[in-house]
Simulated assay, not measured.
Amino acid sequence: MFKGSIVALITPMTPSGDVDYASLQKLVQFHIENGTDAIVSVGTTGESATLPVEEHIKVVEKTVEFSEGKIPVIAGTGANSTQEAIELGDAMKNSGVKGFLSVVPYYNKPQQRGMIAHFNAIADAAPVPVLLYNVPSRTVADLSNESVAELAKHPNIVGIKDATGDLARLADLKPRVPDDFVILSGDDPSGCDFLCAGGDGVISVTANIVPAQMKQMCDAARNGDSALAHKINDEIAELHTTLFIEPNPVVPKWVLYKMGLTQTPALRLPMVEPEPETQNTVMKLLQGMGIVA
């Protein structure tokens, strides 16, 4: 359940800024129909930073409800306070999620020993398996491969989402961790090469838009068909980069609105809709790919 094409799902909003649960149900169904292997609910792309705790929990619970057991859901439970992360996980112990995705603590810049202690404490308390999440472009702190190898000894820490885009880290990490430790890419532009180099899957923003192609690419790469994987990836490569012209999830939410899958492209402040120039650039690509008319 922690391998293949895993979507980092957006959290759709109404014009007033409330969570749009009708559109959320539509998005979950969209991923079931297109073969997505799992959903990450309320991660970075799901605007975890601006959803209050009660709302965060409700979005995860509704995502599980809408999945109807057809697709596993992984809950974002990261925090820069260890106790807060533990409490968030505890609040979701009966939600039906299959795993927690816990990000490196942000802003407070902990030492490596501090991060090891942080994740071990979370894993000790977690009722489900824990995936580490290293994204130094957002957190500043960078979880080293040496620290990941130490954390992989914990029986409840089962893998990592590595969003550095550095393939050399994958080659260095694999021999350090058990064979069943899951190593996922969190970087769409390098995701195909990551899989072909021995990665287990991609937690993908692009999968919000083209889930079937992401699934096909991941399956081809994991089955050893590098040529087919790269052929499929080449078809969506420009989308990988265009979705990040502005900070995630600004562009993906706007695209899903244009696709008719959400009511609005609304985001929680301080995020706002993409600039007109960005909208024009994105629309030309979407039309060229046949995603919108």
Rank of each mutant, 00 (worst) to 15 (best):
P52H: 01
L243P: 12
V182G: 04
G4K: 11
E146P: 05
E54P: 00
F30V: 08
S95T: 02
V251C: 10
E65I: 00
D187F: 10
P252C: 14
D172A: 14
E273P: 03
M115S: 03
V148Q: 04
N208G: 09
M271R: 11
A117M: 10
P270T: 10
V73H: 08
D90M: 14
G198C: 01
Y21H: 07
P136A: 10
A229H: 01
A121L: 07
G260K: 00
P105D: 11
F181R: 00
C196I: 13
T36C: 12
V40F: 10
S147H: 07
S147P: 05
G46I: 14
S144F: 06
A220S: 11
T82Q: 08
F244G: 00
K70Q: 15
K93W: 01
N208F: 08
Q263Y: 00
V7C: 10
P129A: 03
D18N: 14
N134Y: 03
A197W: 01
K62R: 15
S144M: 09
K109A: 10
G69M: 03
E273L: 10
E33R: 14
A212D: 14
Q263H: 04
L195A: 01
D166I: 12
A293Q: 15
L286T: 06
M259V: 02
G198Q: 01
I57E: 15
T63C: 06
G191P: 09
L195F: 01
C218W: 06
E246H: 08
A79S: 15
V292K: 04
K215P: 04
M283L: 13
L24Q: 12
A75P: 12
V64R: 05
R268A: 12
L261I: 13
P189N: 03
T36V: 15
G17Y: 12
V202P: 03
H154L: 02
V40N: 09
C196A: 11
I183A: 01
L228W: 00
R113K: 15
F181V: 08
L151I: 01
D124A: 08
R138V: 12
E235K: 13
A171P: 00
V251R: 09
E238F: 09
L243R: 13
M92A: 10
F66E: 10
G96E: 01
I74A: 07
T45Q: 14
V104C: 11
G224I: 04
N120A: 13
I209R: 04
V148P: 05
Q263T: 13
G43W: 06
A22V: 13
N80D: 15
F119V: 05
K70Y: 11
V135G: 02
G99T: 04
